[in-house]
């Protein structure tokens, strides 16, 4: 598919070489194309098809098409909707709070302050750490007896096992983990805002806040839209961090959609149903993203 699309462009320009060139391109692409097709595109298509079957995990189980039965089950599955609600609370809170925190940090890092270099390096560390280590580290922080948080606050809370506190506690870790990428992107965006615009606004008598609202933010808009969209997609698909922190507990209070789907597939063996969950989440993500990007574009006009 890729090659037929590429060939005509070459043909028009250099007819004599085009055949050899297309063959060469094909040979160069082949080693990368094969794994991507066999282990990524193929499974993705197969995964979508699985959503319409009753596939189970056993090696010799019969699989048959069941049409939309899985989707009907899904609509009636209260546990899924609860998990989905938690996933939306998680993804939206982490994305929004992370954006606000990162914007503040990026604005500070963009100024001539001492400590800036140190803060900049520090802000990159979570990016490099294995998510599992981040999860374990915060489990030490939140530990009810040996953790520092209760010692500092003088409280006696079992942060990750308390029904009402667990989700906010996990959200804080999500913000901590995702801040580097967001900060780096926003900082780079800030550095691309033309200085002349600021100066012109300053001459016109605009104060710091006014300049931020009417010069910096509009200039930053494309970057903000891009990074918050990416953050939302990454967050709704989060698995490792929360698996390590709580395994979805207590009582499912932090069971994000991916943890739910993982359990359906690899604990209970319902491959078909888990694939349906995946498709449903994809549809929702695309809808949310589409709506968000559409509104942003309309406002930008």
């Amino acid at each position: 598919m890729t090659l037929t699309a590429a060939r005509p462009a070459g043909t028009r320009r250099r007819p004599a070489q085009s055949g050899a060139r297309a063959r060469e391109t094909f040979l160069l692409l082949l080693p990368a194309l094969v794994p991507v097709l066999v282990l990524s595109v193929g499974p993705l298509v197969y995964g979508i098809l699985l959503a319409f079957t009753d596939a189970r995990s056993g090696r010799n189980t019969e699989t048959s098409f069941v049409g939309l039965a899985n989707f009907a089950d899904l609509l009636a599955d209260g546990d899924f909707w609860e998990s989905f609600r938690i996933g939306m609370v998680w993804a939206v809170s982490v994305t929004v709070l992370q954006f606000l925190a990162s914007l503040g940090l990026a604005l500070l890092l963009n100024q001539d302050l001492r400590l800036r270099g140190f803060a900049r390096v520090l802000a990159l560390v979570p990016w490099a750490m294995p998510p599992v280590v981040i999860g374990l580290m915060w489990r030490l922080v939140y530990h009810p007896d040996a953790g520092i948080l209760n010692a500092v606050l003088g409280t006696d809370v079992d942060w990750l096992n308390d029904f009402s506190v667990a989700l906010p506690a996990v959200i804080v870790v999500g913000i901590w983990m995702g801040m580097p990428q967001t900060t780096v992107v926003l900082l780079a965006g800030l550095q691309n805002v033309p200085k002349e615009l600021h100066e012109a606004a300053g001459v016109d008598g605009a104060g710091v806040w006014r300049r931020f609202w009417s010069v910096t933010l509009p200039q930053l808009r494309p970057v903000i839209v891009a990074i918050t969209s990416l953050d939302f997609v990454w967050n709704i698909n989060q698995f490792s961090l929360v698996y390590v922190l709580t395994q979805g507990g207590p009582g499912g209070r932090t069971r994000l959609p991916m943890l739910f789907a993982y359990e359906e597939a690899f604990r209970y063996g319902f491959f078909g149903y888990a694939a349906t969950l995946g498709v449903a989440i994809t549809i929702v993500v695309l809808a949310v993203l589409g709506l968000y990007l559409w509104r942003q574009m309309r406002e930008a006009d």
Binding site: T2, G10, T25, L44, Y46, G47, F271, L277, T282, V285
Partner: peptide, 30 residues
Amino acid sequence: YRGALNKIAIGWVLVSQVFPVILIIIPLFM
């Protein structure tokens, strides 16, 4: 050799971000 190939490659990088891993991981496991 730029052209349509590039767009398809970039498109795939973006698409691979949106689809939840669970959708690929089950068939991949099989």
